Simulated scan of single mutants.
Amino acid sequence: MNTLVTPLQVLKLAFGEGEYLPPEIIAEADIAGAEQRHIVPVVGRALYEKLLAGSYPDFRTEYLASPAALFTRAVLQPRLDVRTGQCGTTAPKSAYAQPAGDTARRHLRRALLAQARMLLHRAAEHLRAHRDEFPEYDPENDIFNRCTTDGGFVQIR
């Protein structure tokens, strides 16, 4: 499966220094799903396909890698908070750590999505400002040009 970021990049960009996770925990399907849900509606299918093919590597690295990684973590985080095994679904608990409560998990998810959206807005602004460099980008297909939910308000244009 071809994606804008690798599982290792997701770990480096979306998780902190002390948050060790093996790269195998992040499936390419998690990344692809996050990109389809959040990145493609902004950049458009044509530009996304060109990015997957290797075009515009600087734009991909500087503008899309971080939001793709953060959206992937937001998708993946609920699965990290619980485990499924022979005993069913459980929350990890040890002598040194307690599972986070619902409020803490909600705050983390909101923070991840807010940061990812802000970075994706930055990418969209770059695309609009440099339209000549990205002929595949069609601002009519950019969802941010039609509707945004900044600051908790839905803004329809």
Rank of each mutant, 00 (worst) to 15 (best):
residue 9 Q to D: 10
residue 120 L to F: 06
residue 132 D to M: 13
residue 10 V to S: 05
residue 78 P to Q: 04
residue 103 T to E: 15
residue 131 R to H: 06
residue 81 D to W: 12
residue 133 E to M: 05
residue 48 Y to G: 08
residue 145 N to W: 10
residue 25 I to A: 15
residue 100 A to S: 12
residue 17 E to F: 08
residue 89 T to C: 08
residue 64 L to R: 03
residue 133 E to P: 00
residue 114 A to T: 09
residue 4 L to K: 01
residue 120 L to K: 02
residue 32 A to Y: 03
residue 110 R to G: 06
residue 92 P to S: 10
residue 22 P to L: 10
residue 96 Y to S: 14
residue 87 C to E: 15
residue 41 P to A: 07
residue 87 C to A: 11
residue 23 P to I: 10
residue 155 Q to R: 11
residue 136 E to D: 14
residue 132 D to H: 12
residue 62 E to D: 15
residue 89 T to A: 10
residue 26 I to S: 03
residue 157 R to V: 06
residue 92 P to W: 13
residue 29 A to W: 00
residue 157 R to F: 14
residue 150 D to G: 01
residue 30 D to G: 00
residue 59 F to H: 11
residue 138 D to T: 05
residue 72 T to K: 09
residue 138 D to W: 00
residue 143 I to R: 10
residue 43 V to Q: 08
residue 43 V to H: 05
residue 38 H to G: 06
residue 115 Q to T: 13
residue 78 P to T: 12
residue 122 R to Y: 10
residue 120 L to Y: 02
residue 123 A to F: 03
residue 54 G to C: 09
residue 115 Q to N: 13
residue 34 A to N: 05
residue 107 H to D: 12
residue 51 L to A: 08
residue 69 A to N: 00
residue 21 L to I: 13
residue 142 D to M: 04
residue 84 T to C: 12
residue 93 K to F: 09
residue 101 G to P: 04
residue 53 A to K: 12
residue 67 P to Y: 00
residue 23 P to M: 07
residue 101 G to D: 13
residue 17 E to Q: 11
residue 2 N to W: 07
residue 142 D to W: 06
residue 127 L to K: 13
residue 139 P to D: 02
residue 84 T to F: 13
residue 86 Q to D: 14
residue 154 V to Y: 03
residue 54 G to I: 04
residue 41 P to T: 08
residue 48 Y to V: 02
residue 12 K to T: 05
residue 47 L to E: 01
residue 89 T to Y: 00
residue 67 P to F: 00
residue 31 I to L: 06
residue 22 P to K: 14
residue 37 R to M: 11
residue 40 V to H: 06
residue 131 R to C: 08
residue 100 A to Y: 13
residue 43 V to A: 11
residue 103 T to A: 11
residue 131 R to W: 01
residue 40 V to L: 03
residue 105 R to N: 13
residue 4 L to S: 07
residue 94 S to G: 15
residue 40 V to I: 15
residue 5 V to R: 02
residue 124 A to S: 15
residue 87 C to H: 13
residue 113 L to A: 04
residue 152 G to A: 01
residue 47 L to T: 03
residue 14 A to Q: 10
residue 1 M to I: 05
residue 25 I to Y: 02
residue 118 M to A: 12
residue 108 L to D: 12
residue 2 N to Y: 10
residue 131 R to F: 02
residue 127 L to Q: 04
residue 42 V to A: 07
residue 67 P to M: 07
residue 27 A to W: 09
residue 157 R to C: 09
residue 19 E to Q: 14
residue 149 T to G: 14
residue 21 L to C: 01
residue 5 V to S: 09
residue 106 R to S: 07
residue 64 L to H: 00
residue 97 A to M: 13
residue 51 L to N: 00
residue 149 T to C: 12
residue 105 R to I: 12
residue 29 A to L: 12
residue 9 Q to W: 07
residue 74 A to H: 13
